[in-house]
């Protein structure tokens, strides 16, 4: 499959956003979509280094492999990495176990992101969201306007015609820019394969310690995961279709240990990749609500 068109469109979007931005930043979540987005950014500005930093909003609950991967990739890219943790939430002891996934996500991800953006006064923020992921994302613009307070109003979106993006904002307002809007999960994997983009090993199947909770395999990544009565970690061959905070991210039983296996599996998949994400389904229309409040 030829990626010229998809890739060129994404590069055009990234260049356009940077040309008009005062202080741009790229959200880097260490996952497969972030990896592709970063790769495209480096292509867009080659031979220069992309003229913006990476921002990782760190909940401190990511998989250990993700932190190792992050350091490697950042060093290789030559870009600056900013990490940000909502220390108020941390001090208050907000964890995925104590406060429920919805409140935890709000404090440690959405709030944290807003605090980080305000702290650095970023006006253009790249995110790796795709329109095929979720229903409300299917309606979001490529250049998505946020009012002061980072709010998204789905009914007040600027019309987006052709490849013309309205980048005009006032101080305090910002733009979220999604260069991967028109990519599908399948495109992402094929592109990673074709371009040999490094990814976190958790995407590939391997024997890992897991417990079954509410029908979902949760990996026991470190000693912080409180085991419920009767729960004993067992070794299973699993992998992850998406990566987030390990206590909230379900693994799938799969023996796909290579990229070729993953591509074959993805094309035959009967469940969506976000099915393993607990935060999407914790309340009706939950992604739309989280997005309005500033979640990516």
């Amino acid at each position: 499959m030829s990626f010229n068109k998809l890739e060129s469109e994404s590069i055009e979007i990234i260049r356009e956003a940077v040309a008009e931005a005062v202080n741009p930043v790229m959200l880097y979540s260490i996952g497969k979509d972030s990896s592709v987005m970063l790769h495209l950014a480096r292509k867009a500005f080659y031979p220069a280094t992309p003229p913006f930093p990476l921002l990782h909003v760190d909940t401190t609950w990511k998989f250990r492999d993700m932190y190792i991967h992050r350091e490697k990739v950042v060093a290789e890219s030559g870009m600056t990495l900013i990490t940000y943790t909502n220390t108020d939430g941390q001090t208050a002891g907000v964890t995925p176990f104590t406060h429920g996934s919805s409140y935890y996500t709000d404090v440690m991800k959405t709030e944290a992101l807003k605090q980080a953006l305000d702290l650095h006064s970023f006006d253009v923020v790249f995110g790796g969201a795709r329109r095929d992921e979720e229903k409300s994302r299917a309606k979001e613009r490529i250049f998505s306007f946020r009012s002061g307070g980072h709010r998204w109003d789905p009914k007040m979106q600027r019309p987006e015609l052709w490849n013309l993006y309205n980048t005009r904002i006032r101080s305090g307002e910002s733009l979220r820019v999604f260069p991967l809007s028109n990519w599908t999960e399948h495109d992402i994997w094929e592109y990673i394969h074709k371009e040999r983009i490094p990814i976190v090993p958790l995407y590939l199947a391997k024997e890992r310690p897991v417990v079954l909770r509410g029908g979902i395999w949760i990996m026991v990544d470190d000693e912080r995961l409180p085991l419920e009565p009767g729960e004993t970690p067992q070794m299973r061959v699993v992998r992850f279709r998406t990566l987030g905070c390990y206590p909230l991210t379900g693994a799938i039983e799969s023996s796909a240990a290579t990229l070729e296996d993953i591509i074959a599996e993805t094309f035959k998949a009967r469940v969506s990749e976000r099915q393993g994400r607990l935060i999407d389904s914790d309340q009706p229309g939950s992604m739309e609500k989280k997005k309005q409040e500033g979640y990516f």
Binding site: R131, D132, K135, S136, A138, K139, P154, K155, Q157, S181, N182, T184, H186, P284, G285, E288
Partner: peptide, 21 residues
């Protein structure tokens, strides 16, 4: 009809992009 408001009113009020292959 992705957005909640649309589902309640039973109408499509914006542009939604769908992907299939």
């Amino acid at each position: 009809d992705g957005l909640q408001a649309e589902r309640e009113q039973g109408i499509t009020i914006d542009v939604a992009y769908r992907f299939f292959a």
